[in-house]
Every structure is written in structure tokens, then in C-alpha cells.
Amino acid sequence: MTEPSRLERGYRRVLACYPKEFRRANEEEILAVLLATAAEGRQRAGLAECADLLRGAIKMHLGMSRSPRPVLNAVRLMCAGAVLTLAVLATVLVTLGSLRSDFIQNFTAAQWHTVMLTQIVPVLASAPIGAGVWLWLAWANGRGYDWARPAFMALFGVVTTGLLLGVGEGTALYAPADLIAATVLWLVGLAVIVLIFSKTASPYYQQEPAQQ
């Protein structure tokens, strides 16, 4: 048996990013296509080719090629939810200065310090974790795990509570832009709930993981 070429080894390294079950069924075939389409004398996998393969691998991990349309759209929305969570964080950071000057007019600097520590810092610190949870649930729902839907319900509960608390505090603590961003995030969560609990989506969650 001949040694695999440097190009083949390179492609295999990128293909290793795909889920195991997909690789078992398709790796040799994809590799044959990659080698057939590679330019004569090429030694290394091209950047665009690798990026395309990695994008495919991410889609496969998120179950985006296997899931029914409503789940596929829900996964896209959950990825958008992760981005939006970071956008909420950015909005809070950007509006923090103006919020502080408005707050200081009515309260003392010590009170502002307390509010920062008890309410704003926890929001800022939890946002990256929140974005991670959105992505993790996108993966789990894309794969059709039966626990993924209740887990997303729990996340939606947290998002709803956060929004209600924010609305309760009103403009005293949050800028209108913060509340708008949080409302958009809540609406994304609501759309996800509708999609993953739709009639078309439900059978997907009742399959064995091996079938997905």
C-alpha cells in the first residue's frame, strides 16, 4: 500500500472535524472528490477548501443537514441568540457611561457602586456563559436529543425572568437600547419554542440518537 500524500493527510486532518458517524459513511468518498478536484501538483489543502469543510463540519455537528426544517430554523435562531446575547452585553457596555451620569444626578456615587456590583456586573459576567448555553442548546436540538427541548425551555425561563426584571427596573437602571436588545432576544427565544414544539419537529426528538 502506498503512503498517503501530504495533501491527503492534510485533508484527512480537516475531515477529522466531522462527526464520527458521518466520517465513517462518507470520508473516503469526500476524500476522493477533494483529491480529484485538487490542482495538479498541489501539496497542501487550500484555505478556502478547508474553510468550506469546516463550515460543513459545524453544520453536521449542529445536525443542520439531518434535522427537519423547523428544527433547522430553530438551530439558526439559537445561533443568532448567542450572537444577540453578546450584542446585549455590548449594548450595556456602550450605554453604561450615560446611564451612570443619569443615575448620579439622583443618587450617590456609593449607591451607583452597589448597583454596579449587584446588578450590572452579574449581567455582564453571565453574558458570555449565556452565549455558550445558546450554542450548546443549538447543538443539542440540532442532534435531536430528547432533553434538549426542556433544557431550552429552562433557558427561555431565565431570559424571560431577566427581561421582566429589566422592565421592572425600567429606565432607572437600563437604557432603552438595553431593554430593546433584551426584548429582541426574548422574541428569538419565543420563536425557537414555537419551532421546536411544532408538529413537524416533535417526531425528530423521539428518534434514537443513532438514527439522527
Binding site: 476524500l31 468550506d52 469546516l54 453536521m60
Partner: peptide
């Protein structure tokens, strides 16, 4: 590109729009 093609083929198979016709081994490759 190969990544796009095989993601699309996987989707089309799941949707029931295409199916595998046959498999061959050519020069040791599937």
C-alpha cells in the same frame, strides 16, 4: 466545493429527494 456538496447531498437524502444508486471502487477509492 466538497464541503458544500456533501452537506447538500446529506440534506437531500434526508429530505428524500435523492438516493444512492450504486457504489464502485475506482483506483482503490469509493
Amino acid at each position: 466545493r466538497a464541503g458544500t456538496l456533501y452537506t447538500a447531498l446529506d440534506r437531500l437524502r434526508v429530505d428524500g429527494l435523492i438516493e444512492v444508486d450504486r457504489e464502485e471502487i475506482v483506483e482503490g477509492r469509493l
